[in-house]
Structure formats: C-alpha cells, structure tokens
Amino acid sequence: MEPLIIEGTPKTPTVRFDADEGVIEIKGRSIPENSVEFYKPLVDWLEEYKKNPKDKTVVNIQLEYFNTSSSKCILDVFKKLEAIHKAKHDVEINWYYEEDDEDMLEAGEDYESIIRIPFKMIEIVE
C-alpha cells in the first residue's frame, strides 16, 4: 500500500501515513475553513489500511492548533483506528501537547473518552 505523505501548510498539518511501518502521523496546524476536503484522503487511506493492518499501529498526533471544523474530521480518523483496535490489532495512540497547553491536553482526553482506546499523553517540554 502506498504511503500517504502531505506537506504541511500554515493552515493544514503535515501527514505521514505509512502502511509498511504501521505509522500514522499528523503534525502541525489544522485550521482550514473546510476541513472535510483535506481529511477525506486520510479517512479513505485508513479505510483501505484497515483491511490489512500491521500487528501494531503507532499513531502520533502532534497538533499546535486545530479548529472545530477539523475536530470532527480528526474524530473520523480516530473512529477508523478504533475499528482496527476492535479487530484485535494493537493500536498505540500518542497525543502530544506543548508544555502548559491544557486546552490541547483536554482535547486529547475528550477523544480518548469517545473512542475508548487509551491515549498516551506526552507533554513536549521546550
């Protein structure tokens, strides 16, 4: 399966989805006016990956900002990962947040409580 690589912009994150390594990464800012367009290829890729995932998938989410339009799309990404987890594959989710950024930590906790896969909360200390 071809990896999905998207370079970041001031309003959209850097994406690296690699099926061979079992690594899913979203980093940077996600604040487009309409996020559906941006996230559709990500969700489609995961739908395909779900059919034949690695024994262990490592997910790294490291967002500086995201808007509420993106928040629903990010949940769609997590729902795909939840399905992989439910099919008895190992899914590790690392949620990174910058030092003191309680809002971002809380956002991670919100997702964790909805999708029911334990998150590893990792504070980035500068």
Binding site: T68, S69, K72, L75, D110, I114
Partner: peptide
C-alpha cells in the same frame, strides 16, 4: 460545556460549508 462539546462532536454531522455547531461552545 465539556459534555455539550463531546455530544455535538460525536453526534452531529458537518454542514456542507464545514461548520459543525461547535464554534461557540469551543
């Protein structure tokens, strides 16, 4: 507000314009 946010996040579809009804709650 936290409960309201999570409920809308999990149950409401995005509008065509990309708005999700979450902005003010957020």
């Amino acid at each position: 507000l936290k409960d309201m946010y999570k409920h809308i996040l999990n149950h409401q579809k995005l509008s065509e314009k990309g708005g999700g009804g979450l902005g003010l709650v957020d």
